[in-house]
Design a protein around this nucleic acid. Structure first.
Lengths: 131, 131
DNA sequence: TAACTGTACTAAATATAATAATACAGTTAA
DNA sequence: TTAACTGTATTATTATATTTAGTACAGTTA
């Protein structure tokens, strides 16, 4: 499914969270699609099931997946209405990140290109609203 | 100077690195300005000097400050030419971050506003080049 | 010289991450 | 109903990372 860097200073469960997020965001894992069970994935990645569980719990907390005892864990649909706080934080973090990027040498053009690149692949929701 | 969250899961030295970076990026700490000594800052923040040292060493590695034995630690000027790898990584991370932001509910308009807001405050370097 | 600076090092304490083993409850299909 | 799956919880143990503590040394400055 993907690979982990066991020697990274970044904890395994965090790597898992990040990678699974990416798969969900990029629609590789579709809405309501079932994730591998904690035991299966643990075996595939040669790590402990508890570590998978920790990652799944975090993803559930952040609203990316939902789990049903006895059935499995599934990709949930993101509901923007629930996430005012998350959105606020994401904005703040993005500002910092962009400022840092400019500082280390990215040009405004670089930024515009990145934005174009991403928006090009997105359904144009310029008119989208959050109340 | 700033505050730390000693109860955060994020290590203190990482918090220090992030906060000092922000101060440098936002020009609160000017070029060649002297940072507080490791002992002074440690006392101010009620933490161990070694922790400050670790943060300073990291900032030096990343090119944000330079240290001179016997004199002190100072804000360095960022030289984009040295940072091709950093720039590449920053771009990648920015892409992921933006994709995630859109996923959790930010609109393209939100992004454009953020960009405008930051570019507004920046010296317009749209024409800047890296060879 | 005295009082600063950064830097290095070892040791100990603390916190976090990861593993291991087990157990229990809900689901599903044979 | 049973067997084999699911998620979830718990406890204990090990490993790793972080932080503190104490000390030392070399360069700078007034």
């Amino acid at each position: 499914m993907f690979e982990l860097d066991l020697r990274s200073r970044k904890p395994i469960y965090e790597q898992l969270v990040d990678k699974l997020k990416q798969l969900i965001i990029n629609d590789v894992l579709k809405q309501d699609e079932q994730l591998p069970s904690v035991r299966t994935l643990a075996q595939q990645l040669s790590i402990n099931p508890n570590t998978i569980q920790k990652a799944y719990r975090e993803l559930e907390t952040q609203g990316y997946i939902y789990s049903v005892k006895g059935k499995g864990s599934f990709v949930s649909q993101m509901v923007a209405e629930n996430n005012e706080q998350q959105i606020k934080e994401a904005k703040e973090q993005l500002k910092k990140q962009i400022a840092e990027a400019l500082f280390i040498g990215l040009t405004v053009n670089d930024l515009k290109e990145i934005l174009e690149e991403i928006i090009g692949g997105e359904p144009s929701d310029t008119s989208a609203k959050r109340e």
